[in-house]
Design a protein around this nucleic acid. Structure first.
Lengths: 225, 225
DNA sequence: TCAAAAGTGTTTGTTCTACACCCATGC
DNA sequence: GCATGGGTGTAGAACAAACACTTTTGA
C-alpha cells in the first residue's frame, strides 16, 4: 500500500439510485432525461459523484434528496459496478443504491425540473451505460429482500388495504399470488393491525385499512411471504 | 455531472479480499500481518488499490493472485465500505470480495513472504479499520449463498467424502446438521456422483468419495440445503 | 337486481424434523 | 472382540398449494 497512490489513480467514484415506486398494480422506476452531455437526451438513473468528506451512504441520500426533494427514504446499497469501460467518457466506478418511495410524495415540480419520469419496471426506455444492468440487479435484490423483510410497506401509504398489499407483492415479484394463501400468512403477523376504517375507493363494499406497526414488528422480527 | 470532477474528488478506491478456507472442521480466514505503516504489525485483509485501466473484479483477482499465487479462484463481490473516516489516514472507499479457496493450494512460501496466517472465523485477532465488519458481512453472505448455490465445493478438493461435506456446512453455518437429513437432501442431487473409491484416512471402514459434476448441475441448476 | 371487489376454510401433497441402530475395518 | 467412524429409514409436524363460494353495496 502506498499513501500517495491517489496521485496515480484516476478513478471517480459515483453513486446511482434506483428509485422504486408503486402505482396501483405496477412497480415503477424513476428515470431522468439527461439535459446535458454526454449522452444528452437519453435516459439514466439519478446519480452523482461522491464528495470528499461524505460517507458513501450519505452521497446516495444527498443525490436522492437533491433530485427528488425526498428525505428519510428507505435505501440500501445494492452493488458496485466497476468495469473499466462502463462509462466510455471517463473512468467512473459507481455504487448503486435502491430506494423505495411513496410515489405521491414525489413532487411534480421535480418531474419538470429534472425531466424525470416514472417507467414500469418491465417497460423501460433505452438507458445509458450499464444502467439497465443496475436496474436489473436492484430488482433482483428487491425481489429477494421483500420476501423476508417487511420493506415493501415503504411503497404504500401508512394506511393500506390487503388487496393493495397483494397487488404490490404481485407487482414486485412479477407473479400472481393466491389471495387466500396470502391472507393466511398475513394473518399470522400481529404487527399488521387492522383499523376500524375502510377504503371505498376501489369497491362499493370497501376494504379494511391496515397499518404496519413497526414497534410490534421489532419484537419478533420475523417476516416471510 | 461534471467531467472534471476528478480534479475535486480525492477519494481512492481499493479492494479487500476475504479469503475463506476450510480445515477439517473449521471455517478460516486468511489474514496478513502488516509489515508497513500505517497500522504496522496489526492484522488486516489482503487489499490493494484499483488501477486506472482494470475492472474492479480484475483488481480483486490481481490482489488475490499477487498475494497468494492463486488464480482462477471462486470470488464474488460482497459490498462496498464507504464511511468517510473508515481509514483515518486517507479517504479510501473499499469494495470487498469474498474468495473460496482450497487451503492446501495456498503455498507456505506466501505465508512467509506476506506474514499471512489462517484464523478460525470465530477466533480472529484485532483487525485494522473496519475489516472486522467486512469479514462479518462476507460471512453472512456466504452463509446465505451456500444454502442455495453449490459454491461450498470450492473449499474442498475435487474428491471429497460426505462426512467432509457435512463438516464443511456445519463449519460455515455454525450449527450441527442431522446426518440422515443432510444425506437425504444430497441424495436427490444427481450432480453429486459417488466414485468407486474410498477415503480411509478418517476411519477404518472408509468413506466413499464423491465429486461435484458441474455439467450435470448446469442442466437443472437447483440446489438447496 | 346485478356487477364488482372483499372476504373466508379445507384438503392434499410436500418438506422438515427428530430420532437409533447396524456395518466394515484395523488394531 | 472392540472401538471408530460410515451408512441407512420412518413417523409426525409444519408448511405450501390448490381451489369456489358468499358478502356488501352503489348504481
Amino acid at each position: 500500500m502506498n499513501r500517495t497512490y491517489k496521485q496515480i489513480q484516476q478513478i471517480t467514484l459515483a453513486v446511482d439510485c434506483i428509485i422504486f415506486g408503486f402505482d396501483t398494480d405496477q412497480l415503477e422506476v424513476l428515470l431522468v432525461h439527461r439535459g446535458f452531455e454526454p449522452e444528452k437526451e437519453r435516459w439514466s438513473l439519478m446519480g452523482g459523484f461522491v464528495r470528499n468528506e461524505e460517507d458513501l451512504d450519505e452521497a446516495a441520500n444527498r443525490v436522492l434528496r437533491n433530485l427528488s426533494g425526498l428525505n428519510n427514504v428507505y435505501m440500501e446499497q445494492v452493488r458496485t459496478f466497476g468495469k473499466a469501460n462502463r462509462d466510455p467518457y471517463e473512468r467512473v466506478v459507481s455504487t448503486t443504491y435502491s430506494a423505495l418511495i411513496l410515489k405521491k410524495d414525489y413532487k411534480a415540480e421535480f418531474i419538470k425540473e429534472y425531466r424525470a419520469e416514472w417507467f414500469p419496471i418491465h417497460d423501460l426506455p433505452d438507458l445509458i451505460f450499464d444502467h439497465k444492468d443496475m436496474v436489473v440487479s436492484a430488482l433482483q435484490r428487491l425481489q429477494r429482500r421483500v420476501r423476508s423483510v417487511p420493506i415493501g410497506f415503504n411503497l404504500l401509504p401508512g394506511k393500506f388495504t390487503l388487496p393493495q398489499l397483494q397487488k404490490l407483492y404481485e407487482g414486485i415479484l412479477g407473479e400472481k399470488i393466491d389471495k387466500r394463501n396470502f391472507r393466511k400468512k398475513l394473518g399470522t403477523m400481529d404487527f399488521l393491525v387492522r383499523l376500524d376504517e375502510k377504503d371505498r375507493s376501489q369497491s362499493k363494499k370497501g376494504a379494511f385499512l391496515y397499518r404496519f406497526d413497526k414497534k410490534k414488528y421489532n419484537k419478533a422480527k420475523s417476516f416471510s411471504i
